[in-house]
Simulated assay, not measured.
Amino acid sequence: MSLCRDRVVIVTGAGRGIGRAHALAFAAEGALVVVNDIGVALDGSVTGDGPADQVVAEIEQRGGRAVASKHDVADFDGARDLIGTAIGEFGRLDVLVNNAGFVRDRMLVNLGEEEWDAVIRVHLKGHFATMRHAAAYWRAEAKAGRTPQARVINTTSGAGLLGSVGQSSYSAAKAGIATLTVVAAVELGRYGVTVNAIAPSARTRMTEEVFASDMAKPDSGFDAMAPENVSPLVVWLGSEESAAVTGRVFEVEGGKVSLARGWEHGPAADKGARWEPAELGPVVGELLAKAPEPEPVYGAS
């Protein structure tokens, strides 16, 4: 298997769950992998264990090449050093998979400032910081006449696309990632970089309670909630074959892959002049009548 042979790939949050599955899948396709994970609990508190080292050992046992990174992706300098690790160890960087994250779920009325900041930091800033330093490297390569075939695959969520009750901070961060993805795709395309995102549904530490009823495998033996189901699309998006695909968000669940559609212009009414407040009730009513009902927020009754 050589879809990504000798391509240098960073996977953040790769010590467990979906990130681990990505790292193993890339290595199986011949990639050289930087396994990034600082080792945290579900709420983001540092545990001190070494999941990145464990995944590196798994890859090496299977005949692949990998190195561990314990850089904090949401620390600007740490993100720079993570990119530098790939270049220093393997000579370049071809693919950045942003996957790291955690949850601190609360209803909005109970959500604390520190909880909000922590979730926004690791998800949204963690995507920005790694992309920023990777983009600077790829821009320099392009200006030097070595235009890359580079790929970024970000991780949003159904919560970011539709919202999720009790997850306002997580939903906001993941929505930001989706929009960041489409902006970066336009800005970085000139340097030979594509940028896409996935919204996965799989059983991980963050979702094991949600998918508890799906823990048992059906008679077919196919575990629809296994994190390994998400990785084939990510590996393909990280390959040179995906050069024509950018600025897209894919939903992945079990054996199903779908293309998500973001905000788009809907029905309009144009008076050609400033509206009076009292005029707008019937106008808004007509617009709503012409528009489809929005998809429901996850968890809404």
Rank of each mutant, 00 (worst) to 15 (best):
L93Y: 07
G189N: 06
V230T: 10
S242Y: 02
G64V: 07
G266D: 02
G39K: 00
P282S: 13
F90S: 02
S168L: 03
A273W: 15
A159W: 01
T85A: 14
V234E: 01
E293N: 08
A197W: 00
P227E: 02
P294A: 08
D270V: 14
G285L: 08
Q61D: 12
K271V: 08
I177Q: 05
T194P: 02
E286W: 05
D37T: 00
D75T: 04
D81V: 15
K290L: 06
A57D: 08
S169M: 09
K125T: 10
L280A: 08
T47F: 14
S201D: 09
A224W: 14
S171A: 15
G254Y: 00
S239K: 01
V73R: 00
T12C: 07
R151K: 11
M1D: 12
Y170P: 08
H133N: 01
Q149V: 08
S242R: 06
I177P: 01
D214T: 02
H127L: 12
E253R: 15
P292K: 07
P218Y: 06
V230E: 03
E141W: 09
E113S: 13
E240Y: 04
Y137D: 05
H127E: 11
A57F: 06
T130S: 01
A129D: 08
A25N: 05
V11T: 10
I59S: 01
H133W: 15
F102I: 10
S169Q: 06
L124D: 12
A216V: 12
L188V: 07
R5M: 09
A224R: 14
L3R: 15
A172C: 12
A300E: 06
D43K: 04
R80D: 15
D94Y: 04
G101Q: 11
L32F: 05
P148M: 08
P200I: 00
A31N: 04
G39S: 06
R203Q: 02
V67M: 13
L259K: 06
A175I: 12
N196P: 04
I10Q: 12
F90T: 11
E89I: 05
